[in-house]
């Protein structure tokens, strides 16, 4: 997909890796999210793209659950910009939907929206891309699969070494579904 966010900069040791899996239902999306949350490295930066309704909310709730956060506390940060779920580890859930000009990001300190002590999950990350140059991020793209109202595809792309455990977990999920 070419319209997703992209950040220039190295994926780090081991090059970059991409995985794509089909998710047949919200239950499958949730399982993939749980697996991702359990294998997310310490201070991972994860960027989410995909249109409204593509399953980002379901996936992010499950990732947080995999990280040990009560899923019902995971709500949309569209208005707050940043939700901080107390961990351990604390999880930053960021949504830059309302940031129209990237310049507005300049009013924020890095620590305001990038978690210094745990993972950071960013929805609608476009406005932040200039400030993420050179960072090793995991890009997650959700999309509708065909005309089935429930099926989704999940694409994950990031440093092969940094996210090795996560990619393995996604492979297992993929195999389990088939």
């Amino acid at each position: 997909m070419s319209d997703g966010p992209s950040v220039t900069g190295g994926p780090g040791v081991g090059g970059s890796r991409c995985a794509a899996i089909e998710l047949e239902s919200p239950t499958a999306t949730r399982r993939a999210g749980l697996a991702m949350g359990r294998t997310l490295p310490d201070r991972a930066l994860v960027l989410f793209s995909g249109e409204m309704g593509s399953g980002k909310t379901t996936l992010i709730k499950a990732i947080c659950e995999g990280l040990g956060i009560a899923p019902e506390t995971v709500i949309s940060p569209t208005y707050t910009l940043v939700n901080i779920y107390p961990g351990p580890p604390p999880v930053y859930h960021v949504d830059l939907f309302r940031i129209e000009k990237p310049e507005a990001m300049l009013e924020l300190d890095r620590d305001d929206w990038i978690n210094p002590g745990g993972p950071t999950l960013i929805e609608w990350p476009e406005a932040a891309l200039p400030l993420l140059e050179g960072e090793s991020v995991l890009q997650v793209r959700m999309a509708h699969a065909g005309n089935d109202a429930l099926r989704r595809t999940l694409e994950a792309e990031g440093g092969a070494a940094l996210f090795a455990a996560l990619f393995q977990a996604l492979e297992r999920e993929d195999a389990a579904q088939e």
């Binding site: 009013e107 891309l129 200039p130 140059e133």
Partner: peptide, 11 residues
């Protein structure tokens, strides 16, 4: 004084 323009110029 907020100077952070460099990252955006590069972008």
């Amino acid at each position: 004084i907020y100077l952070k323009s460099e990252a955006f110029r590069k972008w």
